[in-house]
Amino acid sequence: MTQRTVLDAPDITRAITRIAHEIIESDKGSDNLVLLGIPRRGVPLATRLADQIAEISGGETQASELVGSLDITMYRDDLRGGSYRAPEPTRIPSAGIDGRTVVLVDDVLFSGRTIRAALDALADLGRPAKVRLAVLVDRGHRDLPIRADHVGKNLPTSSSERVNVSLAEIDGEDAVTISGGRE
């Protein structure tokens, strides 16, 4: 199986820094922000974004008050088929999400079904003023009318290829690779 690296560790860091700036710019500051990572790899990405945003805004905002996680397992549309999935933690910052700008953070945007589930999960938790989507990689092939507001890298792929995101917090190293596909 062929495997090629499309983003290495410095690329990923640069992408996160750029997205952090974009998020602050589009929201005119960070007062009202909540970053919710979608488990598993969205969570460390959201944490890194929150650290960057806290740093850029000059220590006025605590990174830990910005960031949380949003599990979508129980909102999936394929719960009855497939294999059994254990739920992951959902952790909302103490200030809640009502009236705030929620940025959903995930590693790869593909079919859009995960984000559809995340929007449903969010609706059960409160009423954000705005919801945005930040992803490290957008690989296309959407099943649903969903798009990302902040993208680390647009990656044209064939649907038979696999995009693998590794993050230091979970996998020990930072990398985005593509494998498989027709030769």
């Binding site: 129980m74 719960l79 059960d124 938790l125 409160g126």
Partner: peptide, 20 residues
């Protein structure tokens, strides 16, 4: 028991329901 820990968190939400 671990899933039950997650379920216990649902009881503090405004909407105490999951669509499972």
């Amino acid at each position: 028991l671990d899933i039950a820990e997650e379920m216990a968190l649902v009881s503090q939400r405004e909407i105490k329901k999951l669509p499972v």
